[in-house]
Structures are given as C-alpha cells and as structure tokens.
C-alpha cells in the first residue's frame, strides 16, 4: 500500500492540517516510509487473538452522580484567543 499525493491531501483535509503544496511531496515520501515499516505486521498471524483493550485488565471505574465541577466560566475561557463575554468566538458558521 502506497499513498499518493491526492490521498495525503485528503487525509490532511480530514485531519484539518494545512499542508502547503511544496511540503506535500516530501510528506508523501515520509508517510510511505513509515507505512512500509509498519506493514511488517502483515507477517504476524493474529488469528483468534483479541485486540488488547487494556494493559491493567481493570474494569471502568464509575463515579457518583453529583455536581462537583463547573461554575467557573472565566477559568474555561481564560486562554481563548477570541472570547466575547463568556462565549468562545469563532468565524461565523453557516449551516
């Protein structure tokens, strides 16, 4: 499996990464090197092997239903590049 430029461009779009045209070609080469490397896994017979879900084998801990957090809009918006009152602001979304 080898990626071409168009595929890499579409992956970049999916990942919301602006990759300038001149960086695309070297990126294609790098990604193909990495994919070529990881494709060694094809050699491994994994028939009947369940994918690893957790290294600890623990079950998911569950917390009690109580309001213990929130109530600090200033803390969650303190680092926002653009905020208006206690809202985050982004370029207008047209639906």
């Amino acid at each position: 499996m080898s990626l071409d430029k168009a595929t890499v461009a579409s992956i970049a779009a999916l990942a919301r990464l602006r990759v300038p045209e001149e960086r695309l070609e070297p990126m294609v080469a790098d990604l193909n090197t990495i994919l070529g490397f990881v494709e060694q896994l094809d050699e491994v017979d994994t028939t009947g092997v369940e994918p690893l879900a957790s290294v600890t084998g623990h079950a998911l801990p569950q917390r009690d239903d109580a309001v213990t957090d929130g109530g600090y809009p200033e803390r969650v918006t303190a680092n926002a590049p653009d905020r208006v009152n206690d809202f985050y602001a982004v370029p207008k979304v047209v639906e």
Binding site: V76, D82, V84, F87, A89, V90, P91, K92, V93, V94
Partner: peptide, 14 residues
C-alpha cells in the same frame, strides 16, 4: 453554536 449574535462570528456555549 449561536449564529445570530454577531455579523461575522459564531458564539460557542459548552
């Protein structure tokens, strides 16, 4: 997302 609060921005309330 609130789209009607500002001419060029959407506001986000989480």
């Amino acid at each position: 997302s609130l789209h009607d609060q500002h001419p060029t921005k959407s506001y986000i309330d989480l």
